[in-house]
């Protein structure tokens, strides 16, 4: 992986509190698993960024190596890999995802006012 693509990935991951690398977009998810995570994040009521890996082949290949995770979607919170569809679904159902997102939102809150 080139340094350029690595820094592009890090910029995306660290540039947003919550970022979902997915197939398609929030409005037009192109895969059931990606859509599941979009719906979960909407239910969690947290603002989130998405990256359509179908529109960026370079990121699509490199991110698998970066995270050592072979599939999409991939969710990152506060710069950390949280999981794919299965794990995010389990975390959502157990309430752990809400807690993690609340911590991130609280940390970001002072910067807003």
């Amino acid at each position: 992986m080139s340094e350029d693509i690595r820094s592009r990935i890090q910029g995306l991951i660290k540039g947003h509190k919550v970022v979902l690398f997915m197939k398609g977009t929030k409005q037009f998810p192109a895969c059931g698993f990606s859509n599941t995570v979009v719906q979960i994040l909407k239910k969690e009521g947290v603002p989130f960024e998405t990256v359509n890996i179908l529109a960026d082949g370079e990121i699509r290949q490199a991110l698998k190596e970066y995270s050592n995770w072979p599939t999409y979607p991939q969710l990152y919170v506060d710069g950390k890999f949280v999981g794919g569809c299965d794990i995010v679904t389990e975390l959502h159902q157990s309430g752990e995802l809400s807690k993690e997102l609340a911590v991130v939102a609280a940390a970001a809150a002072p910067a807003l006012n």
């Binding site: 059931g32 599939t71 999981g83 794919g84 794990i87």
Partner: peptide, 26 residues
């Protein structure tokens, strides 16, 4: 959980790079 799933993906190796398009894993 992430490491557990990575262990399964490692066991499936190159199948995860195309032949298996989607794997719902518990």
């Amino acid at each position: 959980r992430i490491d557990q799933h990575k262990m399964v993906y490692a066991a499936l190796g190159d199948w995860m790079a195309g032949p298996i398009h989607a794997l719902a894993l518990t």
